[in-house]
Design a protein around this nucleic acid. Structure first.
Lengths: 202, 202
DNA sequence: CGAGCCCACTGACATTTGTCACCGCCTGGT
DNA sequence: ACCAGGCGGTGACAAATGTCAGTGGGCTCG
């Protein structure tokens, strides 16, 4: 019996996947969580064979949880299941030691089999997705540029961002200018959108 | 046997829901589509009793499809199933004659029963959600303000927007200024985010 | 130990954006 | 016939934004 931990914030999706996986004779969902912060505690308690994690979760992200799981529960395989096939996500997932990367666009029929393959030691990663990730430029942004871009995502003014990050407005403007250049954008809004699209903001 | 049409863009969600609903003795998924443009043709062909529609779909939106279904297949009940409980969405769904409005945050166990209740003639709408919708201000934006805000969502400059909408930059600035005031925002980026959050941009 | 890089910051400057007051043109309602 | 209100537009002005050049400090790597 393969023991599964399921982390997904949308209750209906989570419930539907749990029922679906439960229909398989050799699969068993031993934990369902809706927040990133619940993943590691639930895993330590239930000792699943595989953790199926969404990335964008309340609290910590699935990628962060994957890193913690790799450290604290090395026997547990990690699979990422996400809406977005962003190069940055794939890159980070693999760096975090994930054994599988699935997108929610894919057919549900393959999910159970992907889990079995991961348990056999295989790595599940769509070849086209792998190729696209390798082809895409890796994250060119510095940590500070990421901070500033992330803080500008809600449409804040430069003065607001500076206040929030304890930087001078001039400094923030400079980081944004650098980020705008690196993303090939024309203003901070475009730059933030582009960085988010590429998975460069975590 | 209740015949269901399922419209949802995420293949895995769509597949999982189809399997789940198919497990019920009295339910039958007779059509699954992933694009808004496929909804009406599929409904005309399969004559479902109820159409379960996501809102944000490729092609036309689920709300637009709901309006067309109400006109061309009046016997078919429409239920909206969406990620977002935006007041504007609820309002438009009800105006389009939808018999149910469900959010994907809700428990999957209630889905089948909600469908049965709609088929019995009931309206399925969470009371808290209805109250929140009535409490929220209705869309204060004029058609032009919506156009301009929608065009600014990708971070375009005012000059770009003016070019795309065949307006003068001054006019675009005026509409944006009005929208910024009505949304209580500080710049066009915040205004576009706020309008989108409220479901005012369709 | 220097070269090169990231970081934090400053000041100057041009451009963009947001606000305000005001114009005329239609259209729908009374 | 009149008025209100949406629409498209202009000009002027202040504020925010983006760019550039330059100053240090800390860090790593050859």
């Amino acid at each position: 019996m393969i023991r599964i931990l399921l982390a997904e914030d949308q209750a209906m999706m989570r419930g539907a996947l749990a029922v679906l996986l439960g229909l398989e004779d050799d699969l068993e969902v031993v934990a369902q969580v809706g927040a990133g912060t619940d993943i590691v505690p639930a895993a330590l308690e239930t000792h699943p064979d595989v953790a199926l994690l969404d990335i964008e979760l309340p609290g910590i992200s699935g990628l962060q949880a994957a890193r913690e799981l790799a450290e604290r529960l090395p026997g547990c395989k990690v699979m990422i299941l996400t809406t977005f096939s962003r190069p940055g996500y794939v890159r980070e997932a693999m760096a975090a030691g994930a054994a599988g990367f699935l997108v929610k666009d894919g057919p549900v029929e393959e999910l159970a089999d992907a889990i079995r393959r991961v348990l056999r030691g295989e790595t599940v990663l769509d070849p086209d997705l792998a190729a696209a990730t390798l082809r895409a430029a890796p994250n060119p942004l510095t940590a500070r540029e990421r901070d500033v871009l992330a803080a500008s995502e809600d449409g804040s003014s430069i003065a607001d961002i500076a206040g929030r990050l304890f930087l001078s407005p001039s400094t923030v403007r400079n980081y944004l200018s650098a980020a705008i250049g690196k993303t090939g954008s024309r203003n901070k809004t475009e730059a933030a959108l582009a960085a988010r699209r590429n998975g460069w903001l975590g």
